[in-house]
Nucleic acid binder design. Sequence first.
DNA 1: AATGAATGAGCGTTCATTCAT
DNA 2: AATGAATGAACGCTCATTCAT
Lengths: 210, 210, 210, 210
Amino acid sequence: MGIQERKEREKQQRKEKIIQAAEKVFFSKGFDRSTMDDIAELAELSKGTLYLYFKSKEDLRLAVAHKAILLLNSVTEGIKTMKENALEKLLSMGRACIEFSNNYPNQMKSIMFLEGFELLQVSLSAREIKEVIYRDSPVGMVVQIVEQGVREQLIRDDIPPTVIAHTLWMQFLSIVQFVTMKPAFLEMLDLSPSSVYESHFELVINGIKS
Amino acid sequence: MGIQERKEREKQQRKEKIIQAAEKVFFSKGFDRSTMDDIAELAELSKGTLYLYFKSKEDLRLAVAHKAILLLNSVTEGIKTMKENALEKLLSMGRACIEFSNNYPNQMKSIMFLEGFELLQVSLSAREIKEVIYRDSPVGMVVQIVEQGVREQLIRDDIPPTVIAHTLWMQFLSIVQFVTMKPAFLEMLDLSPSSVYESHFELVINGIKS
Amino acid sequence: MGIQERKEREKQQRKEKIIQAAEKVFFSKGFDRSTMDDIAELAELSKGTLYLYFKSKEDLRLAVAHKAILLLNSVTEGIKTMKENALEKLLSMGRACIEFSNNYPNQMKSIMFLEGFELLQVSLSAREIKEVIYRDSPVGMVVQIVEQGVREQLIRDDIPPTVIAHTLWMQFLSIVQFVTMKPAFLEMLDLSPSSVYESHFELVINGIKS
Amino acid sequence: MGIQERKEREKQQRKEKIIQAAEKVFFSKGFDRSTMDDIAELAELSKGTLYLYFKSKEDLRLAVAHKAILLLNSVTEGIKTMKENALEKLLSMGRACIEFSNNYPNQMKSIMFLEGFELLQVSLSAREIKEVIYRDSPVGMVVQIVEQGVREQLIRDDIPPTVIAHTLWMQFLSIVQFVTMKPAFLEMLDLSPSSVYESHFELVINGIKS
DNA sequence: AATGAATGAGCGTTCATTCAT
DNA sequence: AATGAATGAACGCTCATTCAT
């Protein structure tokens, strides 16, 4: 009864707490430089306890990434069913992602990290990557919107929608990365993050119009 | 005299040999997974000697990246003085970079790596980053070309040239990263690298036109 | 009453179940490589429950050994009251032990283990050793038989019976150990276990004759 | 020249020092309970240095055992060429081994340990065992002496010499084990080690006479 | 009585860096 | 200048034991 449920809930909370600690550590020091000790200390748990919830550091990395992707999806989900046309939807989605990036910077870094560079240096099988990372990747939604845009004759049809969508997504991630990871450059160039984002959208939307 | 010069030359050769060894090791195993032993063995020097030429592993990483950037610059340098218009120059530069990426994949990874994600996870001071990495970054040339394009009224002037240039460069790196690091996806989507690159150029050039 | 007795009986059964699980685990993986988790899982009990019945892993090891010794005693007990002379009894006892070793190899290993080498590497007080291990050791019976043999003038009396008995017992254990733990050598030497055992008996009986 | 030689000698001395420390630790606490930290501390070296000389803990175990066997061989070697008959030689060898056991108790324990119980729980291939442990095992010499005894018609020929030799050797080890590891029992039985040894020799020599 | 979550000391091994030669 | 032996702080992970429920 209630007691069972409470226990289960506490277990989930603890798991969540570990994931949150791992997020912070992974994205302040990088995955390889993070230690299970760091995470345990931040989670206010013993190192041994971590292994009660996650079978390895790699497993924890995966959990961190998956959670971030699900969170981002929950934020962008509503856009799918909106009455907007494809170009407006892409813009909405971009802005939603940026808002997400402001609200949950660690999670955004996590997504970039896992969709990004280090992927092939990781000891994940291709199956695991697809299952865990890409099954729920936001890029899927981008593909759908681009396909809608081609049907609406708003988006050029001379390039396959999947290519356009992946290109857009990668470009978007790169801009977020730029803004997030190199604030010093923005200052140097006397630019605000939002102006960079809007310029980016302006450029790419312009680029894909039919 | 001659003896002095020979000594100096030999010193440079040794330094170069170490950098070459480090390149190979870093980009076959990843930076964190590379050991100074690996590098020393490949350089046919003792581990202690490495520290005569580079004060730390991080310092060696920097040297590797800098060399790669200089090499890329040497490849793109000619474009600056060509008779082409800005849009043609951007395309030329993009294609030159891709050719560079094919000819020197390790060096290209190095550039992406150092201009990319991990940068702030690294124990470099902001000064060092600017000095070593950005002083010679290819993005400087992109800025010049975009400025030329604005003068030629080929490129939109409603967004500052530096923003356009950096956006282009980051987008370009993200596409190279995508093609290089995730070949499995290209296969899945039944796409060739060159078609992805050309689509990318098509989109972004279209996007920046005035 | 009945309820009390049933509870007591169930408690004993649980204890026995734990010992059985421990036997299996200890003798398939070795004591040090066995974990309390292994044992708990096999006993279908929680790890914490193990500590209700045994105060430590070492305590459990002792219980396992003691049980094995009692079992061996039960097998050899009948020999004491037989009508045979001492030499015949020794042979009978040796053969009974070998049969025991075939029927209960794990238990035999346990006895060898605990009477053997590792003993002093174990955190047992001398008192505990005597109490638990030697109080019921089969060597006691060997002493009695040798004393009978001396009375019967079949066994030499120039060496104290206790010495002869312990020597015989240790030699016997060493042979069982040899046969049990190094089957590869028997194969190499093209020998069957039983021929080794019979040779051994032949030699030692011959050696102790008066 | 001299400098090279000195370095080499110091290296050997360090290796030897590590082996000596390992011997002490292994045989006071048992192999599994011994830690590389223990050994490093006793050797007055850092733990890392241990791995400069031995690639793993297991490798160190092997070195300890091999050294002990070689040392024992060096002590018994002279017996082979003596003018004694086989029975006298066996006695000489037994006494030499006992003297060895007194002078080098750790090494003797090492031999017993490695020829003894734990052998098959060890992650050594059969090849390694033969190569490292048995290639030089003293049992080989026992075989030769027994064969001589059969030729001299002093030792019974109804049991194959190899069986007799291995049986003798195992019995001998078991007695040494008894005396070495269980001194409390000797006290309890009011026996001196030497009387136990002599009784043992008396019994087994008597047993193998033709 | 029974659980199982939590602990934390400890393990074998690695490797960037130092330093005597 | 060059070496390579030595260091020691980490690392990911394990597991006997405890204790609140």
